[in-house]
């Protein structure tokens, strides 16, 4: 299936996704987009897990299980985060992260 593709390709893809996520997290002002960036970061890690699992220990399944765990946790996190975002919207009538800055000195 992926026998012909070298591992570097996967790693490059994961790295690009990871830093795209970081960049989105730092620069986007919309909370929903920030949440999407976090998902990008998580998924890039999942890709790494899968790639290393496949190339280093093809007969074992630990990496896959880890990915499944991460997906599950990400789903929960998305649910919680959206609940928080809804509450923030009710409180501030905005989900612009720059306007939600009451927790300061």
């Amino acid at each position: 299936m992926s026998a012909g593709i070298p591992v570097q390709f996967f790693l490059i893809l994961a790295t690009v996704m990871f830093f795209a996520g970081i960049y989105g997290f730092l620069t986007r002002r919309n909370l929903i987009t920030i949440l999407m960036s976090v998902e990008l970061i998580l998924n890039s890690v999942n890709i790494n897990f899968m790639a290393f699992n496949r190339y280093l220990y093809p007969n074992k399944l630990e990496g896959m299980f880890f990915s499944i765990f991460v997906i599950a946790v990400a789903a929960c996190e998305a649910a919680v985060a959206i609940a928080i975002i809804i509450n923030i919207y009710r409180r501030f009538t905005t989900i612009n992260v720059e306007d939600v800055n009451e927790m300061k000195f």
């Binding site: 992260v97 720059e98 000195f105």
Partner: peptide, 17 residues
């Protein structure tokens, strides 16, 4: 030094990253 705590999450995240 109180300005460090600006309430801007993305600034914190930037410092952290």
């Amino acid at each position: 030094i109180r300005d460090f705590q600006s309430g801007q999450i993305q600034k914190y995240a930037f410092v952290f990253v």
